[in-house]
Design a protein around this nucleic acid. Structure first.
Lengths: 251, 251
DNA sequence: AATCCTTATTTGTATGATAATTTGGCCAGA
DNA sequence: TCTGGCCAAATTATCATACAAATAAGGATT
């Protein structure tokens, strides 16, 4: 291994996950998502990355293959690796979303997310009311009970996420499941804000309960309405945030 | 390279793309999506794959990294590679969707897709009406003109896809873009059916035109309505299909 | 000016060796 | 018998090196 490249390797140390190729993928992925390498740009070649990170070509190539599989890159002989256009990026991939969020304006993130949530989650709730299996209903119910017990605070985030994911699963449509990643990221990061600013954290419990009851009764219309109502409240909570944005943590 | 493994390697030859690691990824990916290896199952280890495909470990590992990056696998030392639960699969990844479709009932595919399209596309059209840039409007318009010129037939598929993707892009929300893959796959494969059975192929043109006009005028409500109307027609076309399912082609 | 050929660059594949991780069993001691 | 820790084996992780294949770019030839 080539010593004397401590600057780049120090940045690597922060990246979690013990695998070196994973760290490289994270580092390069972050650079792409943050715009250091724009779509269409040619990345440093494999030999360069080896020098930069002090890693073997095998490892570098595995990192590149990871990014290629996520739609960020495409490699061609004699050309090198070129950054793909944004519409090819698998933004609903857990890693890609995390990288995206580290270099994104939180305001913009929440507004985009809420826009999509308001489109999808009411319909997800409606579908869940119609298509849920008994087992899926039980999962939703359990998540809600945990939410209620935890009340507000850090402990309520995990059950909250579980509630929404269980609802999503109960919709029983494969093409909706990818949104779980986005919902999870949204709720987890929202806590960073709402926990301190939300004047009435417990008001969310009845809203969730309304969804649960509608889904239990199989009332799609009521489920849709309840889900939308919850999201509208969430909107207001977000709108009450201070303008200066904290830095988002990754999912 | 080890000769005498012609059976597995023959299956590989069919896979497009000149890269060997890509072919391996496709082959293994197809096996996972088709249920040969179910979620939770341990895959053959790297040495096994080497024997099976007659490839080097380097290549096998790159294929495995590709699948890991798409959420299909997770590797751990001493354990091997385990198939991840379905909710972690990046189903909106181009490759994963293609693998999924080769082993999926077309009826089920279209019904799932249409369910999601009816949720999203009206809202996408509405957002496009509100958020489109002049350039994006031009892209939509051009796609429509090409559709009109091509009339029905094979040539109309590409502009049709472009129209819907341009609309999607004009919605200007990153978290919606992943659906482009799904829409593209749906429209492309739908042609296999509608081209022969649709009694009035040209009736789709006015429907698309209605969307275009609404988006041009910036009328979100009208755009929403027109998009939904088009999708309802598509539903009817699909419903008129013969019950016996043809085999889907990959995206 | 156009065509072909050569060369250089970069990714793709193979091989073999060593490191790191962690399961599972073995063994010692309480 | 139970408990704890230690050892060994299996598997992925990383490295180093070499050669193959593809192809862009430039040069030679007509």
């Amino acid at each position: 291994m080539n010593p004397g490249k401590s600057s780049q390797k120090a940045a690597l140390a922060k990246s979690a996950g013990s695998n070196l190729h994973r760290k490289l993928a994270q580092s390069i992925g972050n650079q792409i998502l943050s715009g250091v390498y724009a779509p269409g740009a040619i990345l440093p070649n494999e030999a360069d990355w080896c020098r930069i990170y002090g890693a073997s070509r095998t490892t570098v190539r595995e990192a590149v293959k990871t990014l290629t599989a996520k739609g960020l890159l495409k490699s061609r002989t004699k050309i090198g690796s070129r950054v793909e256009p944004r519409e090819n990026w698998n933004i609903l991939d857990r890693d890609v979303l995390a990288w995206h969020m580290t270099s994104m304006n939180p305001q913009e993130f929440f507004s985009s997310v809420q826009e999509v949530r308001k489109i999808l989650e009411p319909e997800i709730a409606a579908l869940a009311a119609l298509n849920r299996t008994p087992q899926q209903l039980r999962a939703i119910t359990e998540a809600f009970e945990h939410m209620r017990k935890a009340k507000a605070g850090l402990n309520s985030v995990a059950p909250d996420v579980r509630f929404h994911l269980a609802l999503l699963a109960a919709a029983n449509n494969v093409f909706l499941t990818p949104f779980g990643i986005m919902i999870e990221a949204a709720l987890t990061n929202m806590f960073e804000f709402t926990s301190t600013h939300n004047p009435e954290p417990d008001m969310f419990i009845p809203k969730h309960e309304a969804i649960l009851k509608a889904v239990t009764r199989g009332n799609a219309k009521a489920a849709r309405k309840a889900a939308l109502s919850l999201l509208t409240d969430t909107d207001h909570t977000i709108a009450g945030l201070p303008a200066k944005a904290k830095k988002l943590k990754k999912a």
